[in-house]
Amino acid sequence: MRMRHQLATAVAVLAVSGAAISPALATSPRTSSADDTFLRTAHRNNLAEIATAKDAGKNATTSCVKRVAKVLVRDHMKMDDEVKKLADKLRASLPGSPTDEQKKQLAALRAKAHTKAYDAAWLKAQAAGHEKTLDLIDHELKYGHDEKVRHLAKKLRPTVVMHLGLVHGGTCHDSHNDHKAAAGNGS
């Protein structure tokens, strides 16, 4: 009986001291729910933006859309590298692909490939997507707890604002044109 009591006491001491912490607990995310949601959603949005922008590079009909798509690929790859690096540092898990809805949107776009309707649909989807991403960033800045995640959101915001300016209103706006080019006008 005395031996069982000593063994139970030893187990309790180890548990209280932290020596018996399981590896699963030691690697759990240290981010808040809002911070974790931001990282996961930002990553998924980046994956979707990269895929749709690469697709536009192949399937758009206007040079303006192709130029904007090239900018989006470059910038979203850089932004996603930063999201992944921070998520890894914070041990936050990230999804492996865009959402099913984002995949459906890309499939619907591809059905219009090499038409003016493709360009118009792509621009409209980009405007809506970047508005949602801006809302996500602003939500993180207001409600996020982790200073590193909030700093990243603040750092990414100007790029997303710039992207929104390139596709605002479903119209292609790029620095290579002195005028605003509507989708499908051949500019």
Results as ranks from 00 to 15, higher is better:
5 H>I: 09
9 T>H: 14
10 A>R: 10
11 V>I: 12
17 S>C: 06
18 G>Y: 02
20 A>W: 01
25 L>E: 01
27 T>M: 05
30 R>F: 03
30 R>Q: 08
34 A>L: 02
35 D>R: 09
35 D>P: 04
44 R>N: 04
44 R>A: 15
49 E>I: 01
51 A>S: 10
52 T>C: 04
55 D>S: 15
56 A>F: 07
56 A>M: 04
57 G>T: 11
57 G>L: 09
58 K>R: 14
59 N>C: 07
59 N>V: 09
63 S>D: 15
64 C>M: 08
67 R>W: 10
68 V>L: 09
70 K>D: 15
70 K>C: 03
74 R>T: 14
79 M>Y: 07
80 D>P: 05
80 D>A: 03
82 E>D: 12
87 A>Q: 05
88 D>Y: 01
89 K>L: 14
90 L>V: 00
91 R>E: 02
94 L>P: 05
95 P>C: 02
95 P>F: 11
95 P>S: 06
97 S>W: 01
101 E>Q: 15
101 E>R: 11
102 Q>M: 13
107 A>E: 15
110 R>S: 15
112 K>N: 07
115 T>W: 04
116 K>Y: 08
116 K>F: 04
118 Y>I: 10
118 Y>G: 14
120 A>C: 08
122 W>Q: 12
122 W>M: 12
123 L>P: 10
124 K>V: 13
126 Q>F: 01
129 G>E: 06
129 G>H: 06
133 T>D: 00
134 L>W: 00
135 D>F: 03
136 L>A: 02
140 E>G: 02
143 Y>N: 10
147 E>R: 13
152 L>F: 06
152 L>K: 07
152 L>E: 05
153 A>Y: 02
153 A>H: 06
154 K>S: 15
154 K>E: 13
154 K>Y: 10
157 R>C: 03
157 R>S: 02
159 T>R: 03
161 V>H: 01
161 V>P: 00
163 H>F: 03
164 L>Q: 01
166 L>E: 03
167 V>L: 06
168 H>W: 07
169 G>L: 07
170 G>F: 10
171 T>G: 01
172 C>T: 11
173 H>Y: 09
174 D>F: 13
176 H>Y: 13
177 N>I: 09
178 D>H: 13
179 H>R: 07
179 H>S: 11
180 K>N: 11
182 A>M: 05
183 A>F: 10
185 N>W: 05
